[in-house]
Amino acid sequence: MFATSLVQTLTFAIAAMICVTGALGVVALRNPVHNALSLVATLFGVAVLFIAQEAYFLAAIQVIVYAGAIVVLFLFVIMLLGVDRAESFAAERHPLGLAVGGILGGGVMVLAAVTLFAGVDTATGRRSTVGALAPSDDLNRIGRALFTEYAFAFELTSLLLTIAVLGAVLLSRRASGPPIDLDEFPAEEPDADAEEVEA
């Protein structure tokens, strides 16, 4: 019993350390490629935490979709745009942004500390409404909930994905005409384009 608890604690500590280090790397490093790789570290740490909580299906999805697809997409765009050089961090340091960011980030952490020290056992008092967890059968349970209780949301998700694909195709279509000067904004044509995409 003690050994199991020790292993769990150690797993959590190491994964949490990886997560927080990666998150700090995303915020603080100057090279976009390093930011993306730090993001991978955080995502893997989160996947480990999912496994520690017996959410095996979500851990696999986390690695495949996030670390496999989304971060690769980020790296692809970084390489495509050629912004893989260090930026001047000092130039983009805004006093107001720093202050608001620090206050908001610190506030959330204080809120979390309050939660921790208050020692609440249940956040809402509600009990299972969808279905109980089953670690050896979690894919089945998730699928069943997805196609019964959340069927409408699932269909909306497919709609969202279709819209996203259409939007990406529209946005990445190469516009004809010479590159425009930012000082001439808002010009007529790009605005009409943007409206259309948004709608």
Partner: peptide, 9 residues
């Protein structure tokens, strides 16, 4: 904590 699969969904 709540033993509910809804969170995972």
């Amino acid at each position: 904590m709540l033993n509910d699969v809804g969170g995972q969904v």
